[in-house]
Simulated assay, not measured.
Amino acid sequence: MVVLGIDAHKRSHTVVAVDHAGRKLGERTLTATTSDHLAMLTWAEQFGDQRQWAVEDCLHLSRRLEHDLLAAGESLVRVPPKLMAQTRDSARTYGKSDPIDALAVARAVLREPDLPTARLDGPAREVRLLADHRDDLVAERTRVINRLRWHLHELDPSWAPPARSLWRPKNLATVTERLKDLAGLVARLARTLVERCRELSGQIAELDRELSELVAQVAPTLLELCGCATLTAAKIVGETAGVDRFRSRHAFARHNGTAPVPVWSSNRARHRLSRVGNRQLNAAVHRIAITQAHYHPEAIAFLERRRAAGDSKLESIRVLKRRLSDVVYRALQADLQHTPRASHRRLTTTLT
């Protein structure tokens, strides 16, 4: 087996081939184009048919490369940057260069046999792109509203617009009415910001409708979970990027940061919240946990039992999130298998 490690960049890719013992067999640097990707495949044929491609896990740089390799029927795994950096630091070579990084990627595959496998994009990427674009528009609308508030304060310090809801149509209509008879540059800029806020709100509402339809198709079981509405489900589906790439529910918990971290001291065994993992996915699970802590009877009873046993509020929420990670994992698996929705309801409501 020959492993070909790739250090991907915006304009070029460097590939290094190593044998089963990690010895370097060859090296080549090509531009990041489809034609050169095909030339790289031709170059790799000299090492035989038993080959494994590996690329540093940075999709914004390697997406076209992965697509070309997978479309050609090649096997490709992704190496986390942290693992690649550890392998590079433990090598006998010094410094940092593209060939050194590509060599570290290849050797990391030899040391870690269970790395995630790359695959062609599916519905999960569409959900993620829509959700990320919506987040960008919401952030832009927030910046517009903040500037608008300062202009309104300058025009009339005695008037306080509604907090956290200035983007609503009725509140924007009120602002437009107050600005109608005002002259000057500040008033003109404020009217421009009001129109921009209306435009962004319309785009966000359209994205909400599109996400609602798409998520209902790809994750109906997940939507049945208490505390998991369209936006939270979209974040989970997009950030998970295919639940079947995780070998177990424990691996999924480690990925989303809900797996507890041991912090033992002397003879006292205890755990704390994990600060690693996908923070976007962790935040989605946290929203579900907080919602269920207020409205879901089973979650409320579970938290009461944990606190009666001596857990603090944070510790009980941490345990709840770990249980919910398993519930989300099973719901995603059920959606992947397209099983009847009637059989999912009991699965997604239990915390055991």
Score class of each variant (00 low, 15 high):
Pro116Gly: 04
Leu76Cys: 03
Arg119Asn: 10
Ala102Pro: 15
Pro157Met: 08
Pro123Leu: 03
Val105Arg: 01
Ala85His: 13
Ser75Thr: 15
Arg107Glu: 00
Trp167Tyr: 09
Val79Ala: 00
Leu148Arg: 01
Ser75Gly: 04
Pro161His: 00
Pro81Asn: 03
Ile145Lys: 02
Leu130Cys: 06
Ala102Cys: 00
Ala183Gln: 14
Arg134Ile: 10
Lys180His: 12
Ala139Ser: 14
Met84Trp: 00
Ala108Gln: 09
Ala106Met: 06
Leu182Tyr: 04
Glu154Thr: 09
Glu126Cys: 07
Gly95Leu: 08
Pro80His: 06
Val79Asp: 00
Ala85Asp: 15
Val175Asp: 00
Glu126Lys: 10
Arg119Leu: 01
Met84Cys: 13
Arg92Trp: 09
Leu185His: 10
Val138Leu: 15
Gly184Ala: 09
Ile145Tyr: 00
Thr176Asn: 05
Leu148Ile: 07
Ser90Ile: 12
Ser75His: 13
Val144Ile: 10
Ala85Lys: 15
Arg78Ile: 07
Gln86Glu: 15
Arg178Tyr: 07
Val175Glu: 02
Arg147Pro: 09
Glu74Lys: 07
Glu140Gly: 13
Trp167Glu: 15
Pro162Gln: 00
Asp132Val: 00
Ala104Lys: 12
Arg92Ile: 02
Arg141Ser: 03
Ala160Asp: 14
Gly73Gln: 09
Leu120Tyr: 11
Asp132Cys: 05
Gly95Phe: 01
Thr93Val: 08
His133Asn: 14
Lys96Gly: 15
Trp167Met: 03
Pro116Tyr: 06
Ser97Thr: 15
Pro81Leu: 02
Arg78Leu: 12
Ser158Asn: 10
Ala183Trp: 10
Asp89Gly: 00
Leu152Asn: 11
Pro123Cys: 07
Leu155Ala: 05
Leu166Ser: 07
Leu129His: 13
Val138His: 03
Arg147Phe: 09
Ala173Asp: 15
Arg78Ser: 01
Val105Ala: 05
Ala173Gly: 13
Pro162His: 01
Thr93Tyr: 11
Leu130Asn: 03
Gln86Phe: 14
Glu74Ser: 07
Val79Ile: 08
Asn171Val: 04
Arg147Ile: 04
Pro80Tyr: 02
Gly184Phe: 08
Ala173Asn: 13
Ala118Cys: 12
Thr142His: 02
Gly73Phe: 12
Arg92Pro: 11
Arg141Gly: 04
Thr176Val: 03
Glu140Gln: 15
Val127Cys: 13
Ala108Lys: 05
Val186Leu: 07
Ala72Lys: 05
Val175Ala: 04
Leu166Lys: 11
Ser90Gly: 08
Arg125Ser: 11
Arg141Glu: 06
Ala118His: 02
Arg178Cys: 03
Glu74Pro: 14
Leu120Val: 13
Gly95Met: 08
Ser90His: 08
Ser165His: 11
Gln86Asn: 15
Leu103Ile: 06
Leu137Asn: 07
Val186Ser: 10
Leu179Pro: 02
